[in-house]
Simulated scan of single mutants.
Amino acid sequence: MAKSSAGRSALSRIMQILAAFDVDAVFLTVSQLSARSGLALATTHRLVAEMEQFGLLERQLDKTYRLGVRLWEIACRTPGALGLREIAKPYLQEVQARVRQHTQLGILEGYEVLFLERLSARDAVVNVTLVGGRLPLHASSSGLVLLAHSDATFQDEVLAGDLFRYTDQTVQTPESLRSLLQQIRRDGYACGRGYIHPEARGIAVPIRGVNDLVVAAVSVVVPNDDAPVTGLVRLLQAAAQGIGKDLHAAYAPSNDPAATPGGRYRTLVSSSLDSMEYLPSAPRPQTRR
């Protein structure tokens, strides 16, 4: 039976095609895009051709399509996720230089934690996190930190949902999850021992932005052994404090003495002081499209 896209706006249909791609499905044929998006094949053909023209999709030699670089270019202009990533990256690198395992930055997105960055050593412990990938809030240390600092209504919605079980150690009941969230708020960090893989342990702390609101979590994934977490927690808290301070400076009024230089670029870019001072006045040729 032919699928119908009647009543849907052009933008909603384009979003359905973009959403068909996933970390496990980065190359898709038009037929696969049609099936995964729920759009009619003829509609998918037409939209894919137009999206390719604008650089939103790129056609491969085997006639599959992947997301286009133009999407990445546009995404890099958002001061939300990628601006945060830019500001946080020097601190993530400092943490990673110490732990030499996995260091991550995650934000709340829907009922999941979305990872904006992950730094990994080649010989590090098992870790399923992918940049641009997601994990359930209840199963990851970053997700637990973000959930613990969410409002009560949102917590109730998560508690009422399915708590997917990765291992025997994954939090399984609403009662145990609610108790764990209270402990995280009290201790200031989350530690998930074997929640996703028996050999891995995640440790995360919150990052506070403007108005002291929790905007992200910084975490490490290390071997699930008996090593104390105190040193790692302190390391992460120092990084979170630095990121929070730089976030405040990036969003402070431009006439504030503590404001980061860089004008309109300061919420997007984290660079040397000389670079930030030069950026607003740097000559820029008109981009050809």
Rank of each mutant, 00 (worst) to 15 (best):
Y166I: 04
A249K: 14
R46P: 04
L163F: 08
R77L: 15
R98S: 10
L213R: 15
Q16V: 00
Y166E: 13
D246P: 07
Q101M: 12
V128D: 07
K63H: 15
P79H: 05
R266G: 10
D162C: 06
P223W: 03
T64C: 06
V48A: 04
A97P: 09
R185T: 13
D22Y: 08
M1F: 08
C191G: 14
A252H: 03
A81P: 11
V215C: 07
D187V: 05
F21H: 02
D168M: 12
S254N: 12
P223F: 02
A227R: 14
T167A: 07
R13F: 06
G194N: 01
R186Y: 05
Y166W: 12
Y65W: 05
Y91C: 13
Q16A: 14
L273I: 04
R70G: 00
T173V: 01
A35Q: 13
D62T: 00
T167H: 11
L11R: 14
G80N: 11
A97I: 12
E52P: 06
K3P: 01
V221F: 02
T129Q: 10
V48M: 08
N224I: 13
G106D: 01
A10W: 07
R98F: 04
H149K: 01
Y166F: 14
T260K: 15
V214Y: 05
N211G: 00
H138A: 01
Q241G: 09
V48Q: 05
A19S: 12
S140R: 08
R288W: 09
P253W: 08
P206L: 10
L247Y: 06
R46V: 03
Q183N: 12
L108Q: 05
C191S: 14
R98W: 13
V26G: 01
Q286G: 11
A139L: 02
L47I: 04
A121P: 09
H138K: 04
L71Q: 06
R46G: 09
S37H: 03
R266I: 11
G161M: 00
R118L: 03
Y195D: 12
A259R: 12
A35D: 13
S142C: 08
Y278N: 12
A25G: 12
K89D: 09
I207Q: 06
